[in-house]
Amino acid sequence: MEVIKIRSLKKIYNPDTVPVHAVDGIDTEFQSGEFTAIVGPSGCGKTTFLNLVGGLESPTEGEIFINGENISHKKKSQMTDFRLHNIGFVFQAYNLIPVMSAYENVAFIMELLGRPQSEIKTRVMELLDAMGVADKAGQRPHQLSGGQQQRVAVARALASKPKFILADEPTANLDSHSTETLLDLMLKMNEKEGTTIIFSTHDQRVMNKARRLVQMDDGKIVGNGKPEAN
């Protein structure tokens, strides 16, 4: 089943001065439960593409359908609400809320959604346990290692059971061991929860873990398929 359908997507920065075609006419789909890596050299448009799919930026042209709903022309406030209910984010720099504990960071979105405390507690502890950081629940981000912080960030992204998770270079700041652990956990959660996960990377080890690779260059998709085929 299609979760995301993209048609003729373009993003042009500085259209009136020095136009930069960051995303230049992309057509693609993402199916439910996919574990997809967007790959390509730096500056090829991976981050812009993910931002467009996540509604963090508006496309210059084209349309993005999520579960059949066109999000390309949604207002800012509608898009914020849409993200809250449908999309999970994982960032390269972890971006946990520094004044909140690991538990509170994961619970944050569920609290925003107004879920009951009993449900929040069960879900948060289940996720922290699955990500192997249950014993760090009471600790604040600065007390955790980079790998642990990113695992908490993945737990946070999964907490509200979103339709898909967008992760922009989630392993870029991690050592090889932490990268391996994180990817294994993401794969495990992808299987267990059935959540579609789309992440960008230029790390070959990470690409090898993906079930589908989307190759980008100069804002265009130049390759699309299974890792073995790339």
């Binding site: 963090l56 914020t80 609400d81 993200r83 809250l84 984010f89 809320i97 979105i109 925003l112």
Partner: peptide
């Protein structure tokens, strides 16, 4: 980050 997560 907060706004991307859905904080209006």
């Amino acid at each position: 980050m907060l706004r991307s997560l859905g904080l209006n």
